[in-house]
Measured scan of single mutants.
Amino acid sequence: MISLIAALAVDRVIGMENAMPWNLPADLAWFKRNTLNKPVIMGRHTWESIGRPLPGRKNIILSSQPGTDDRVTWVKSVDEAIAACGDVPEIMVIGGGRVYEQFLPKAQKLYLTHIDAEVEGDTHFPDYEPDDWESVFSEFHDADAQNSHSYCFEILERR
């Protein structure tokens, strides 16, 4: 099963200049909980913004210009990325925008964090048809001392 995991502000903004323009430790914990011990696929820009392999996960970098870091697996196509994951129950696609666009048609599940923030962004989550998805989990949280904005975790499964 292919799943996408993303944090989205208003207007589906997911990033600005290779960074997330908010401070939500709870979302980072949600991300870790849902990706640990699963292969993660990301684009080169996302890889560069993280700066290191995510521990406890097979890191697969999709790029037309593969790098030389041998701590991760470099691939040039969506099919190659899927094959590099091996026989696993769930593959997690973690961004960025172009990689989400490439995998959305193949995805069966979306793990979304909806952030109540209007922020400037240069990267967006692809538009998706809500009628194609069923919400199977939703959990709202107010902003607090650690988390700069209110947010809602949601899991959607393709109908």
Rank of each mutant, 00 (worst) to 15 (best):
I2T: 01
L4E: 02
I5N: 00
I5K: 02
A7T: 03
V10E: 09
R12M: 15
A19M: 09
P21N: 04
N23S: 05
L24C: 06
P25I: 14
P25N: 08
A26S: 02
L28A: 02
W30R: 10
F31L: 05
R33D: 09
N34T: 06
T35S: 04
L36S: 11
L36F: 15
K38D: 03
P39N: 10
V40F: 09
V40W: 00
H45I: 02
T46F: 03
S49W: 00
G51M: 07
R52S: 15
L54T: 01
P55W: 12
P55A: 14
P55Q: 14
P55V: 12
G56R: 09
G56L: 07
R57T: 00
S63T: 15
P66V: 13
P66N: 11
G67I: 14
D70K: 13
D70R: 13
V72Q: 06
V72W: 13
V72A: 15
V72P: 09
W74K: 03
K76R: 14
K76V: 14
S77F: 14
V78R: 14
D79A: 10
I82S: 04
A83I: 12
A84M: 07
G86W: 05
G86F: 05
G86S: 08
P89S: 07
V93N: 00
G97C: 04
G97S: 06
G97H: 03
G97Q: 11
R98L: 04
V99S: 08
Y100V: 00
E101I: 05
Q102R: 07
F103L: 07
F103V: 06
L104R: 01
K106Y: 10
Q108L: 08
K109S: 01
Y111P: 01
V119H: 04
V119S: 09
E120A: 04
E120L: 11
E120M: 14
G121V: 00
G121E: 00
H124C: 13
F125L: 07
F125G: 02
Y128V: 06
Y128K: 04
E129C: 11
D131Y: 13
D131P: 10
D132L: 11
S135D: 05
S138W: 05
E139F: 06
F140V: 14
H141A: 05
A145W: 06
N147T: 06
N147G: 03
H149V: 10
H149M: 01
S150V: 05
Y151Q: 13
Y151A: 09
Y151M: 08
E157W: 08
E157Y: 06
E157A: 09
R159G: 12
